[in-house]
Design a protein around this nucleic acid. Structure first.
Lengths: 323, 323
DNA sequence: CAAGGGATTGCAAACGTATTCAGGCCGATC
DNA sequence: GATCGGCCTGAATACGTTTGCAATCCCTTG
């Protein structure tokens, strides 16, 4: 009897005890398919990691893997199962999961060009789609997004560099519309410069998005340009790591000659020598927020965009005080 | 009609076309709960990542995350969904997933003390449990395991070090029964020594298992012991990274003074300077093998232990030829 | 021309649960 | 003492598929 197992108040305590005891003895497990069919609910969330089709699929940004593990824990904590898929986002991801009753809601994770399907997302809003997305807020889907305050994060990084006396800060990261979150970081960077009475130099901004090798190449381009600079603000730790490798190869010392600050605080940031100073995004809090918001949406409540405060983690790659 | 959609030969091509076209037009999706209930199958695999309870839960070995992403792709490629859980392994993980019809089979992933529940695994064998496990073969569950040939891997690493003229090779890694795979690597190491006419020195073996910090501490212990050594074979890349950091802190150069070789080939191995020479486990092939074996078991076929051949990836951390 | 057989198709049952509904029991109230 | 009402329980239904089975159709063969 379903009521007894689910602690319904409609059933007397004695009966409940008895049923539950016997269920335990028989190693009885509720059949999820049957329960799902009857209640039209799967008690399952789906996590879709969409990847930039340009990058090598076998390599995933550790930041997202960290998100993944925290999301899994967050879902489990709430007694929801988590379905994980790394597939290229299919045309009908929403129908595939929700309409088929495989998942009650969907979490979207990924950098890059989801702007290309923003219109699709907007369309889903008018239907009964339950999904949340990590990243920058897009017009039209504000309520579904959870993101880090990228503007504040960018400002934090550049303020730190300026505070250490750096004046010619290169920004390595894509600021086109393809990467709204990177763009916001750049705006924070510019704001920090402005506070210090400085103008951003367009020659010091290099587009880059992707794995470590992209950071390496972008830095090479920067060096080749001959522009003088004394610091690098990399839009992700992966890119920062590539930048450091490139600088070292060119005979430049970090932080002696060049300060480098990253973004994300992936674990590898700690292993570098010097350890990477970076702007930390709290993946555990982000995961909680994403899952909470999604469950609230499923429950029919309205929700708003949530912004997470980033924090600066000072390590060795910028010089100044070492920790 | 189910038959038309599933391309059953019982239905005529014209009818099939027609049904499928209309289904597409209506955006029809098969209800997985109903299908699962009727067919008593979920078309879903569960991936259980059990963690050593001693380590900080928030940090997962990148090697397993790489396995995870490849397993997800492998499952999707076969049109199976993947349920992921990082929970501490519960007492009844098998019943929770299989008996409840949430998953058709289970993939177990994790280092360490699953020896503690080997007896439980053995018991499940007598029942209708469908599961595979990554790691060292345990007596009694051979048929369910997929693992790397750790003996060969250990030998590969030490042969490389010996070939570079190193003679006092420290082995950092737990060789107790808790970590059967590490033990096999040590045996491979010893075999390589024997080939070169050398005896293993027990003073050069330090127990260690876990994240980077554990490698750091173990190396510190090695240094404190005063034993001379000219190379380190670390049982995992994470430990190798900790070892390098410790050596550098002690003023020793890698590879100038000490050669270091790791195991796994996690992505971070590439980012180090010098980049880490390591024994690579092909996570993509491993994932394919795990999923294949599990699906075969579900289909009722018998399977045997699969061993994956490791390969040596030479980078800069051992000296000699640099790549 | 009738019968037989193969190829399709339509019908109906069953999967195991959640939930509605009616009924039964018991205590309290008048 | 009878009626009413509250609390609990048991039965019955519906969820949307898959699949076995019976029925139909058409073509071939005797």
């Amino acid at each position: 009897m379903s009521r007894a197992l689910r602690n319904s108040p409609l059933v007397s305590p004695e009966t409940r005890e008895k049923v539950q005891r016997i269920a335990r003895e028989l190693n009885y497990q509720v059949d999820r398919s049957a329960a799902g069919l009857r209640s039209q609910t799967s008690h399952t969330l789906a996590l879709l990691l969409f990847e930039d089709s340009t990058t090598d699929n076998s390599q995933i940004n550790p930041f997202f893997l960290s998100m993944l593990s925290n999301i899994s824990r967050a879902a489990n904590r709430r007694n929801f199962d988590l379905l994980v898929s790394f597939q290229q986002l299919s045309k009908d991801w929403h129908y595939e999961y929700e309409a088929s009753n495989r998942a009650d809601g969907i979490i979207l994770l990924g950098y890059g060009d989801y702007i290309s399907f923003t219109d699709k997302l907007a369309k889903l809003l008018s239907e009964d789609a339950h999904f949340v997305i990590w990243g920058a807020t897009q017009p039209g889907i504000e309520a579904h997004a959870v993101g880090c305050d990228n503007f504040a994060g960018g400002r934090l990084a550049s303020e730190h560099l300026l505070g250490l006396g750096r004046r010619r800060i290169a920004f390595i990261g894509d600021i086109t519309d393809r990467c709204p979150e990177f763009k916001r970081r750049y705006e924070g960077h510019v704001a920090a410069l402005a506070e210090a009475g400085l103008e951003p130099d367009p020659a010091l901004q290099i587009d880059a998005q992707g794995p470590e090798t992209v950071g390496f190449e972008a830095t090479q381009r920067l060096l080749d340009s001959g522009q003088p600079f004394d610091a690098i603000f990399a839009v992700s730790d992966l890119i920062a790591i590539g930048a450091v490798r490139c600088l070292n190869k060119a005979g430049l010392s970090v932080p002696g000659d060049i300060s480098v600050v990253g973004f994300d605080d992936i674990h590898a940031a700690r292993y570098l020598s010097p350890a990477l100073t970076t702007v930390r995004q709290d993946t555990s809090a982000a995961a909680d927020l994403l899952v909470d918001k999604l469950l609230r949406m499923i429950a029919g409540e309205e929700a708003r965009t949530d912004l997470l405060a980033p924090s600066l983690v000072v390590r060795g790659s910028c010089g100044g005080r070492e920790r």
